[in-house]
Design a protein around this nucleic acid. Structure first.
Length: 104
DNA sequence: AAGTTGACAAGAG
DNA sequence: ACTCTTGCCAACT
């Protein structure tokens, strides 16, 4: 049980549920996830859930990037993980969304 | 209580 | 592609 339910367990559960559906070799954007769960204005909250995802369990949070395809600032390891799954990187900090963005 | 910060998005220049 | 501004919402100070 959460020490003090961050935003509402529902929101966190919805986000993590979607993240868990992202197939290997693909990535999703915060805005995309936010829309899938019906909260397209809450894209920032999606990011916050992922940053605390470890508190809820283990999820492929490395498959989530921002709208520009840029990887998480402050987490260089993410590029390595994506590369292992077959995601081609444009730079050390960007993925090729036009090829690897997850479609629902 | 109020202002700032942040793994963001979208529009404008 | 980049920076600046606006909107959004919870956590932090």
């Amino acid at each position: 049980m959460a020490p003090s339910a961050r935003f509402t367990e529902d929101f966190a559960y919805e986000v993590l549920s979607v993240v868990g559906e992202i197939p290997e070799g693909t990535v999703a954007t915060y805005g995309q996830i936010a829309r899938l769960i019906g909260r397209n204005k809450n894209s920032r909250l999606v990011a916050r859930v992922l940053s605390h995802a470890s508190d809820y369990g283990e999820f492929p949070c490395h498959r989530v990037v921002n709208h520009a395809g840029r990887l998480v600032p402050g987490w260089p390891e993410q590029a390595f993980l994506l590369r292992q799954e077959g995601v081609e990187l444009k730079d050390a900090m960007h993925v090729d969304l036009r090829k690897y963005q997850w479609e629902c």
